[in-house]
Design a binder for these strands. Structure first.
Lengths: 221, 221
DNA sequence: GAATAAAACGAACGGTCGTGCTATTTCTTG
DNA sequence: CAAGAAATAGCACGACCGTTCGTTTTATTC
């Protein structure tokens, strides 16, 4: 087990394709998963920057050095936490929309799932907010691998929304519409988590439906 | 100078009303201002949480303890940094819109100023992003005075946008429109700073103009 | 079950953090 | 310019940080 899942760029398989979850996963792989899930929970509460080895080890009931041995550095751990969180995001928010067979309804379904994720992070990881969005704002100006990983995720996220927009509102200016949708999610997070506004969802949904009804059009302004 | 500006809740005057800027300000007051401005710059680059005493003292060319003596705690310093950053935000983004005599055009002018602020933080403090927004996401789930201050600012910000919306688009659902506008700014920040998208402004403006043309309406959805 | 590899531990390191203290310098004021 | 107050520096502290290393415990494999 010298070769780690890290090298494959995601955390579900090792290089030889062996599953990392389930009974045929080795002990180290299982612990590794426990660590990443707990770290994601911690990150969602206090930000990726607050994922420190001591407290994380305490929460896991293991030693700091034993934990550290799974990752070559704290930075590598942070990057993996982001990858893990993105996996969960895909499982909870992205993948379920395939069950909707009317493809023009998938955008609305995705948006609803996203708001759920933002409001009830228990679906995801911790009791704090979405660790991915937190990382975006935390590292938007801090060069390094964490920033690169965050930018990569956000780019894929925009592409994903863009494809949904193209199906649901082909006449719309795609990029501008993606910006508006992304913004509604971000603003929703602040109103729910920072402002504790009980009506946040109502306002967000009104704005979203108005946006779909009259999206920004191509070539205008 | 036992009584500090801090106690008044903002940083431009002491309790007795004496100006803190200009020649009749005492030396300590001036140093205090230098500290807060430099701290805001540092916060804009790496977040409020990264405003630590050692590096901040280095940048100011003074000792850690000399700096610390101006504030009773690091937390108090952070709160004051937020207050100072909000003052600058008002000076640069909010106040100038009064020069527009057509009140229905003030919303658009504000939005333009805000995007400028997000893109060119030199207008504000450091070379990083808006320290206020960064603090909102950094502390949205971390209880304490910093969080309270951030929530206060955001509430006032929403009220301000809401008043502009009421003048420019009285038929609109005010809260939903405020959410959409706020979101466009947040998303703009990510696309400019994290994604380094050169077309961010074009997309943001298209979405903004579409929003003003067809805002969410009252009582709908 | 013995041999071997992987995983986890415990202690220690150099470094930085926020925060007290006391002494010294610098400003302010009569 | 002298006396007093305010501002700053110097130093030390305990706590926590990421990281390393040698040892011990636990899994895996034959």
């Amino acid at each position: 087990m010298i070769v780690r899942a890290l090298k494959r760029g995601h955390s579900l398989q090792t290089e030889d394709g062996r599953e990392v979850r389930g009974p045929d996963a080795t002990k180290g792989d299982r612990t590794r998963m426990r660590i990443l899930d707990e770290a994601a929970a911690l990150a969602s509460e206090n930000g990726i920057g607050a994922v420190t080895l001591g407290p994380l080890a305490d929460r896991l009931g293991m030693s700091k050095s034993g934990l550290f041995a799974h990752f070559k550095s704290k930075e590598a751990l942070q990057v993996e936490v982001l990858i893990r969180a993105a996996e969960r995001f895909t499982e909870v928010v992205i993948s379920p929309i395939r069950e909707e067979k009317d493809k023009t309804k998938r955008l609305a379904l995705f948006f609803k799932n996203w708001l759920d994720w933002i409001e009830h992070p228990s679906l995801g990881s911790g009791k704090g907010g979405c660790p991915i969005l937190a990382a975006h704002f935390e590292y938007d100006d801090v060069p390094g691998p964490v920033r690169e990983q965050a930018a990569k995720h956000n780019g894929e996220f925009y592409d994903f929304i863009g494809r949904l927009v193209a199906v649901t509102a082909p006449q719309a200016d795609r990029d501008a519409t993606v910006a508006a949708i992304d913004g509604l999610g971000l603003s929703h997070l602040l109103r729910v988590r920072l402002m504790k506004d009980a009506n946040a969802r109502t306002h967000t949904m009104r704005a979203f439906e108005a946006l779909l009804k009259n999206p920004p059009l191509k070539g205008v302004a």
